[in-house]
Design a protein around this nucleic acid. Sequence first.
DNA 1: CTTAAAATCACCCGAAAGTATGACCGCGAT
DNA 2: ATCGCGGTCATACTTTCGGGTGATTTTAAG
Lengths: 155, 155
Amino acid sequence: MTFLSRYKQTILYGIALAAIIFIIRWFEIRYVLADDQMDTYIGIIALLFTGLGIWIAAKLRRPKVETVIIEKEVRLSPSTEFVLNEAELKRLNLSKRELEVLQLMAEGLSNQEIADKLFVSLNTIKTHSAQLFGKMDVRRRTQAVETGKRLGLIP
Amino acid sequence: MTFLSRYKQTILYGIALAAIIFIIRWFEIRYVLADDQMDTYIGIIALLFTGLGIWIAAKLRRPKVETVIIEKEVRLSPSTEFVLNEAELKRLNLSKRELEVLQLMAEGLSNQEIADKLFVSLNTIKTHSAQLFGKMDVRRRTQAVETGKRLGLIP
DNA sequence: CTTAAAATCACCCGAAAGTATGACCGCGAT
DNA sequence: ATCGCGGTCATACTTTCGGGTGATTTTAAG
């Protein structure tokens, strides 16, 4: 079993070669005596072996690998430190608590998780977020986060 | 100029074929009269065309392209353009559509708005986002956005 | 041609988010 | 003192999200 599978390809090649040689011989016997058929014979041989070459190449060649190297710039973690945009904060008139809620929202926390983290009730967070959305003129937390980042309210 | 570069390969093949035919003719003239040289002649032809086949196969096969991403650490200025982290994208195995949905999520759009923007149904967006959350191992869109930004998948 | 992955859409259900409204407390400014 | 505001909480209701499942079609790869 192991032998067969290991040398399967080699055996196949062997058989194929034997077959081709047989075919050549057969053609030779039939046509070699008539000299005017020579060109046809040569043509067939040529075609046959061109095909064999293609087949061998396709089977044997390890796939050509073209390596494309892309140099990518990667941010260093502490490269840009965040500076809060106090002007915007003042303009929007956000309270401390509201900003706090916004920051936690930006970290991907749910209202319940924010409530737990700040030791207040879920409804309180809902109230805060509603206030927040009103002041920022958005209607979804994802929008609030986007706007907050754009305005420099959160990192 | 355009013509030459466009058909370079074809022209090369043509020249090569012509050369081979010439060589065959040459051999033919020299050896065809002596019948006992026949086998040698056939052998040479066979070899020649096997080589041609291999050459054609090697030329014709389209190379497999392997992309290697080299991460280069670079300290960048505050106003930096976004570079997608393809390594992470590949690691997470996100599809084009999934990444697209993630980007729109990050802009604060609702599923319905994303659906409208991409001209597909709400359900499709839900499916995409569910796939997305699974691959990113998160359970909320805000988390997905946060993680996406952290990993450099979105600006 | 066949298989696998991606993309599309649907339906259901429960959870989370968001809206609206009202209430209570504490604290500083008028 | 009282008025306004920030912070807290609640109830009730609507909308959006997210999970689960299944199906069809399109596209890519072998």
